[in-house]
Design a protein around this nucleic acid. Structure first.
Length: 260
DNA sequence: ATGACATATGAGATATGA
């Protein structure tokens, strides 16, 4: 079972790239972030024609997450618990049947949090606390669970080509990194690191500006975190770096795992 | 030091991203 995550930076601007990638990569479940459209503007028909069910939690202009799947989603949750007045569409979760049993999958778009010292940063930290609480509750189910998405956190210096360039940025702040670590310490496995170990230059985002991709000035901020029951079934994990070299790319690339 | 680049909105310039 192939499970992917990809921040597309507007699904409508990225439709041709996305359809090409789905046809080639053939994920069974794909979590998308930064749709930048409301539910009704999501190009569902194009993906249905490829054989996917579209579960969409959209929002006008900003944010928006989706899960596209071969199988019908069940037990759907829209929004992260813990803050009723949170109107930002950043969390979507559902259960999917597979050949080896069910997998619960979440599509996560964790707040950026820049600049430091603002409401945006405190919102990011609060959101991470809420994610921690929800992950802890989900882990009690003892199910195969994949928390996939754009975490907007560079976990450690080896996850950036130029870590010094990210000092003072919310993505590499000590607070955000510490909260990401406490999430992992619930017993979750970072799929890319589990498969690729200390291999250098594992990046999922390159800025559009200043020739960042050409200079490989990348960072690893898109992650798939696995419960023990999912980690037991982890077969492979890869970053589809080539999509960043295509015409009209997203600034993020897809990350995909295969579970047995 | 600044802006670089891309996207949505909406019709020019601003907000957001990372």
């Amino acid at each position: 079972m192939k499970i992917a995550t990809w921040n597309v930076n507007s699904i409508n601007a990225r439709l041709d790239n996305a359809l090409a990638w789905f046809s080639e990569a053939k994920p069974d479940v794909a979590c998308l972030q930064e749709l930048k459209c409301e539910d009704k503007a999501f190009p569902a028909q194009a993906f249905e024609d490829l054989g996917y069910h579209c579960l969409v939690h959209g929002q006008k202009t900003y944010n928006g997450v989706a899960i596209l799947s071969r199988a019908m989603p069940e037990d759907v949750r829209r929004g992260l618990p813990g803050e009723d007045e949170d109107g930002q569409a950043r969390y979507l979760e559902a259960v999917f049947p597979g050949k080896s049993g069910i997998v619960r999958v979440a599509s996560i778009y964790l707040p950026n949090g820049n600049p430091l010292g603002t409401d945006k940063f405190t919102y990011k930290l609060r959101w991470m606390d809420r994610l921690h609480a929800h992950a802890r509750a989900l882990l009690k189910l003892e199910e195969p669970l994949v928390l996939a998405g754009d975490y907007n956190v560079i976990p450690s210096a080896r996850d950036a080509r130029n870590p010094e360039a990210w000092l003072g940025d919310a993505l590499f702040s000590a607070e955000a990194r510490a909260k990401f670590r406490t999430l992992l310490n619930l017993g979750l496995t970072d799929a890319i690191r589990q498969v690729h170990g200390d291999e250098p230059d594992l990046y999922t985002f390159w800025d559009y500006q200043a020739g960042a991709f050409k200079r490989n000035h990348g960072i690893r901020i898109d992650h798939l975190l696995l419960s023990p029951q999912a980690a037991d079934r982890l077969k492979s994990a890869r970053i589809d770096r080539d999509t960043r070299a295509q015409d009209h790319p997203s600034d993020h690339v897809p990350v995909m795992i295969e579970l047995t």
